[in-house]
């Protein structure tokens, strides 16, 4: 292509043709700026059809393989004490993600490190141990643990009963009363909760309290411990959540008593809460 040479660099040049095209290509060493010169534009050949088809096939196969091999989220299990932490698990209940919803939750999640690839019950156990070590669960005091499951399809392993038992099995505090509230909800609520920056459990609690005329600001609901939320508003949380979940309680017992027999949790009759 012939045109006026506008730029020359490392054997290539840019020319402006008389019909207004700015064109780049290889140029001779002798060509001078502003003079008419001929550039040879780089050749572009249409790729053969078979190559295009092969590339398309590879892309689709790759996407398929990725979808097949990469772990996809099957369920979410949120644990709320003061920290709000949510495990994302695959179909085999192996942890594939961990998220802290509030300040304490983020701190605890980072203390837990990378537990991806570990079973969910191991994750829950480690989390409760860290919560005890960090002082969120206290020996000899009343503690409340809320566990909420969300699953893409019905799965007994993520049901309230199973989750409550999982928490009870790995509960690390030796003395004092404990209430384990297990809830189950759907993915829409989970999405809505995430949008509000709350774990599914705290979101359900907020909505339930709202229904009963108790409005708690999102920031307070996110950061406060369940124990102080109950005390602050004179609520029995297990009663508030009544028929939507499963509650396990361990009555207060002395350390000496507990050393002699196994930890016992009772499926509690739902306490009546005066509205």
């Amino acid at each position: 292509m012939q045109g006026m040479l506008l730029k020359k660099q490392n054997g290539t040049g840019i020319v402006l043709t008389s019909d207004g095209t700015y064109c780049r290509g290889a140029i001779s060493e002798e060509a001078l700026l502003g003079e008419e010169a001929t550039v040879v534009p780089p050749r572009w050949r249409r790729p053969p059809l078979w190559l295009a088809a092969a590339v398309t096939a590879v892309v689709f196969l790759g996407l398929g393989a990725y979808r097949f091999l990469a772990p996809s989220s099957w369920a979410y299990v949120a644990i709320d004490v003061e920290p709000s932490v949510e495990f994302t698990v695959d179909r085999g209940l192996t942890v594939i993600g961990l998220k802290g919803y509030n300040f304490a939750g983020k701190k605890l999640a980072s203390a837990l490190g990378d537990i991806r690839g570990k079973p969910l019950d191991y994750g829950v156990e480690s989390l409760l141990e860290k919560a005890l070590a960090a002082g969120y669960l206290r020996e000899g005091e009343d503690n409340i643990v809320m566990v909420t499951g969300v699953c893409r399809q019905e799965d007994e392993r993520i049901g309230p009963e199973a989750l409550a038992n999982m928490v009870a099995d790995s509960y690390p505090v030796q003395r004092g009363k404990v209430e384990i509230i297990a809830l189950y909800t759907d993915t829409d609520v989970h999405r809505q909760a995430a949008k509000n920056g709350l774990s599914s459990g705290r979101y359900l609690l907020q909505q339930e309290l709202k229904r009963r005329g108790v409005n708690i600001a999102g920031r307070v609901m996110r950061e406060e411990s369940l124990r102080s939320l109950g005390k602050g508003h004179n609520l029995v949380l297990s009663a508030v959540m009544d028929d939507t979940g499963w509650v396990l309680t361990r009555p207060e017992s002395s350390f000496l008593e507990r050393r002699q027999k196994q930890d016992v949790f009772y499926a509690a009759p739902v306490p009546v809460q005066k509205e």
Binding site: M4, L5, L6, K7, I14, G20, T21, Y22, C23, R24, L32, L33, G34, E35
Partner: peptide, 27 residues
């Protein structure tokens, strides 16, 4: 003189944030 004019043109283009390289793609 030609070369100077071309350099002047490139400078004038750059005042409007245009480079010769991008004009190749934009033609």
């Amino acid at each position: 003189d030609r070369a100077e004019e071309i350099q002047d043109y490139e400078a004038a283009l750059s005042e409007y944030g245009i480079s010769l390289d991008e004009l190749v793609c934009l033609s």
